[in-house]
């Protein structure tokens, strides 16, 4: 086989591999495309039509949350973007369209919290599957917290800024894994001699907010 022929063969093999890899992730890609579209809306790349665009996005994607197509990380990302869109509308308060979208965002956030709680209940002690014992459940929680840590620590230079981000997610998104991750980081820092009192206060407040949110269930 000549050099160009070998290269052509390699090109086909690589293309085929990538096509299959993408094909297997079709549903996932669709979710990521939707998140990216929402992010474009938040960046106001659509100009004055932001309200309309958010309305359309909700009309198309409210089902995703109910159908359980979203991972906890996706819910966090969407929550973060929606929060910023809502802040934008609040700054320009007064328009009926803004109020409508803000209330739609509130409803989505409530649904996201319910979705988190339903995941917890599904994996609760009433399940008789052998893999759902406490060791397995803790292992899964640890793995999710570890994934969250990798995501949050990307590009950051100090553990304290990761802790800040994690606490923010625990407070705003009511993310249970973020709460556990924050507690772990605080204990780690405390054992290293850092002053952690302000972070402990924020952790307690985040815990209180999460308990309060659960009580609405």
């Amino acid at each position: 086989m000549s050099h160009p022929e070998s290269l052509k063969k390699l090109q086909q093999t690589l293309e085929s591999f990538l096509e299959r890899a993408v094909g297997q992730k079709e549903q996932r890609l669709s979710v990521l495309e939707d998140i990216n579209r929402l992010d474009n809306i938040a960046r106001n790349e659509l100009g004055d039509t932001t309200g309309e665009a958010v309305g359309e996005w909700f009309a198309r994607h409210n089902q995703q949350l109910e159908q359980g197509d979203l991972r906890p990380g996706d819910i966090d990302r969407i929550g973060r973007i929606l929060h910023e869109i809502k802040d934008g509308f609040n700054r320009n308060a007064g328009s009926p369209e803004g109020r409508k979208i803000a209330s739609e965002i509130d409803r989505w956030e409530e649904a996201a919290q319910r979705s988190r709680r339903s995941v917890t209940l599904k994996r609760g002690p009433e399940s008789k599957k052998p893999e759902d014992d406490s060791i397995s459940l803790f292992g899964k929680t640890l793995a999710r917290a570890s994934g969250l840590f990798l995501e949050m620590s990307a590009g950051r230079k100090h553990l304290l800024s990761v802790l800040g981000e994690s606490l923010k997610s625990a407070e705003i998104q009511k993310n249970r894994e973020a709460l556990l991750l924050s507690a772990f980081i605080i204990y780690y820092l405390k054992s290293g001699g850092y002053k952690v009192e302000p972070y402990v206060k924020r952790l307690r407040e985040a815990e209180r907010l999460q308990k309060e949110a659960s009580s609405y269930a």
Binding site: L18, A21, L32, I35, N36, I81, A154
Partner: peptide, 22 residues
């Protein structure tokens, strides 16, 4: 909003889907 790296990853996957490998 998405972190720049997250957005870049999403756009990379979308480009793969469109076979825009560069």
């Amino acid at each position: 909003m998405l972190k720049p790296a997250e957005k870049a990853y999403f756009q990379a996957l979308a480009a793969l889907k469109d076979k825009d490998y560069e």
